[in-house]
Amino acid sequence: MSGDMREVTYRQALNEALAEELERDANVFLMGEEVAQYNGAYKVSQGLLDRFGPMRIIDTPISENGFAGMGVGAAMVGLRPIVEFMTFSFSLVAFDQVVNNATNMLTMSGGQFNIPITFRGPNGPAHQLGATHSHATECLYANFPGLKICTPATPRDAKGLLKTAIRDNNPVLVLESELLYSSKGMIEPADQELLIPLGEAELKREGSDVTIICYAQTVPLALAAAEALEEEEISAEVLDLRSIKPLDLHAILNSVAKTHRVVVAEQDRPYCGIGSEICYRIQKEIFDELDAPIARVSQEDVPMPYNERLEKAVLPSAEKIVAAVKKVCDA
């Protein structure tokens, strides 16, 4: 990193990743609802149709199961499709294609057919979209062997992870975030290749009293919480998982061995959520390092209400993380 770093939005970073990989490999194409002529429902694919043409930037009808499957079929014969879900809430309509076809194919075929496909789009609650449009799907998909899952929280991670996902020879879910599309961050110059490996967490802030494990939308919340805690002389370390699968257990254990106290801030729901698995792994590997029970901050266990005040009550927040940290530090 150098003085040449520049500031871009999360949306621009994704757009750069798409354009660079489309440029680099003629087998890469983008398909989804409104990705071409409309330039993307969230403008992530802005300008790509003009640059790469209609054979590589393909508008689909509203048929998530159909076009997800079409992507898998194209991947069977060696193309590298990027399938955009307008939101991962709609990927539930395509669940069968993602799970049964993309994910099982390599095993079912005895190793003959790998599926190099990227499924990407916003995931997790946005703002008052109600129960059907607010799903955080990472915990659902994490249960399936054969899938890789990443959850970029910054523009730099968004670009680096998406590029790596496109080059991966397996189905990869890039779970973006509507709430983060306009967020800004520093990133390498455009002419510098930026690839971030899947399965590598990153310390977004160092600290010594407690580890806040987070990903995607909970990263900015955890950073805000850490800042607030500093005023109360609690030094919080913020570990951004960046990938849900593979999970960077090594980074988790290192941080916990240093701070001995843990809060998991996740954007999904508590029951069988990502935090459940992390808590299990920590106690299994380094139980003796823990000075307090692990706390979790997640959504409340209810379908998402539309009402703004209730939605806020359901979602994780910096305040909830601060409260959880204080609890584990007092224990």
């Binding site: 992507g71 079929g73 194209a74 014969v77």
Partner: peptide, 11 residues
């Protein structure tokens, strides 16, 4: 479920 796969292969 393989009918969309066929469309993808044809694509």
């Amino acid at each position: 479920a393989h009918v969309p796969l066929a469309a993808g292969i044809a694509l």
